[in-house]
Design a protein around this nucleic acid. Sequence first.
DNA 1: ATAAACCCGACTAAAATAGTCAAGTATCAT
DNA 2: ATGATACTTGACTATTTTAGTCGGGTTTAT
Lengths: 141, 141
Amino acid sequence: MKLTSKGRYAVMALVDLAKFNDINPVSLRDISLRQGISLDYLEQIFSKLRKKEIVQSVRGTQGGYVLNKKAKEIKLTNILDAVDEKVKTVQCKKELKKGCNGKATKCLTHNLWDELETHINNFFDKKSLEDLVQDNIERRV
Amino acid sequence: MKLTSKGRYAVMALVDLAKFNDINPVSLRDISLRQGISLDYLEQIFSKLRKKEIVQSVRGTQGGYVLNKKAKEIKLTNILDAVDEKVKTVQCKKELKKGCNGKATKCLTHNLWDELETHINNFFDKKSLEDLVQDNIERRV
DNA sequence: ATAAACCCGACTAAAATAGTCAAGTATCAT
DNA sequence: ATGATACTTGACTATTTTAGTCGGGTTTAT
Ligand code: FES
Ligand code: FES
């Protein structure tokens, strides 16, 4: 079970963005330099974040990205969903009655993975971008 | 974030095994048939489980595998560790002071992923094989 | 003896990941 | 106006991981 860089970068970049958000649009170039993430990769990531209305873009010189909602309203869930990093513990289609390997019934452990998924999503639903920025400021002091 | 089939299979197979454990050694062929998992793949998985002393093997005809500890004492953590499915939320070396991308300091989100890892491991530490077998019997009734 | 089972290592196809690259378009500062 | 800055889009690619397969063993009950 691992978290991919795409998801980690998305959150990292948004925390960075959120810190400067009130002043000016933040360019990906700046985030790239500060966080050490490839600019081209960041562009892919922000394209997804924009489509899911988590950020807004400002084109042209002095442009960049700004948050599209209040940091408090952006949950980890929203960010990870946007970049296709949803938690996935089973491979069977949930809505279908079929099991893992095309069997007629759900397998012995289906229920367990469902519980796990809920457990992890609870964590993601609770944490907002605001929390993360806050944590960060506190730690610095 | 996803769980791989290897991890899912390992747990599935052990739940199956645990149900028959008291009577006779259970052959992988049987597990393979009942659970619809490739026999060759199961062999790889059980080789790891044996090395981590979660199961014991009985060779020869009528052989198979038996649990090496009580079902109550085998936690999900132990199973997933054995098959190299540990939770991994960061890519930076934890013990080192260095950050994600070789930076001198830990990144903005390091602490968050640490929390997440703990959160998930709590779940894995709590659930024992016995719990899973029990859940299963209850559901059948 | 022979068949059932475990044991071991090497191999591989397919998918996912973590990017790179090229060619745009919009907008601001001067 | 014109350049520079920055977003936009889509295609491409190397590497790694996953989910197996395959071929040959060795052990042991019957
Ligand atoms: S995990 Fe859903 S049927 Fe196995
Ligand atoms: S996750 Fe550890 S430094 Fe980024």
